[in-house]
Amino acid sequence: MIKAVKTTLEGVIKIIPDSFEDFRGCYVEIYNKDLYKARGVEADFIQDDISVSSKHVLRGIHGDNETWKLVSCLLGRFYLVVVNCDEQSAGFGQWESFVLSETNRHQILIPPGFGNAHVVLSDQAIFHYKQSTYYNPSGQFTYKWDDPRLNIWWPVKNPLLSQRDETGKLV
Rank of each mutant, 00 (worst) to 15 (best):
Glu66Leu: 13
Val12Leu: 00
Asn84Pro: 14
Lys69His: 03
Gly91Glu: 14
Gln107Arg: 10
Glu96Lys: 14
Arg39Ala: 14
Ile13Asn: 04
Val82Phe: 10
Ser101Tyr: 12
His56Gln: 13
Lys33Phe: 03
Arg59Asp: 02
Lys69Ile: 00
Phe20Ala: 09
Leu58Pro: 05
Asp18Phe: 13
Asn32Ile: 02
Leu75Thr: 12
Trp68Lys: 02
Ile16Pro: 00
Arg59Tyr: 05
Thr67Phe: 02
His62Ser: 06
Ile46Met: 02
Gln47Lys: 09
Gly76Val: 08
Phe78Ser: 04
Lys33Tyr: 07
Ala43Glu: 02
Tyr31Glu: 01
Phe98Arg: 00
Ile13Thr: 15
Gly76Glu: 11
Ile61Thr: 05
Asp22His: 08
Ser53Pro: 00
Pro17Leu: 03
Ile46Asn: 10
Gly91Gln: 14
Ile46Ser: 07
Phe20Val: 12
Cys26His: 11
Lys33Gly: 03
Asp22Val: 13
Asn65Ile: 03
Ile16Thr: 10
Arg59Trp: 04
Val81Lys: 03
Ala43His: 06
Ile30Tyr: 05
Cys85Pro: 01
Glu102Asn: 05
Asp44Cys: 05
His106Ala: 14
Asp22Lys: 08
Asp86Leu: 00
Arg39Tyr: 05
Ser54Glu: 13
Gln47Arg: 08
Pro17Glu: 12
Asp64Asn: 14
Gln88Thr: 13
Arg105Ser: 06
Val41Tyr: 09
Phe78Pro: 04
Gly91Trp: 02
Gly76Asn: 08
Tyr79His: 15
Val57Leu: 08
Tyr79Arg: 03
Arg24Glu: 09
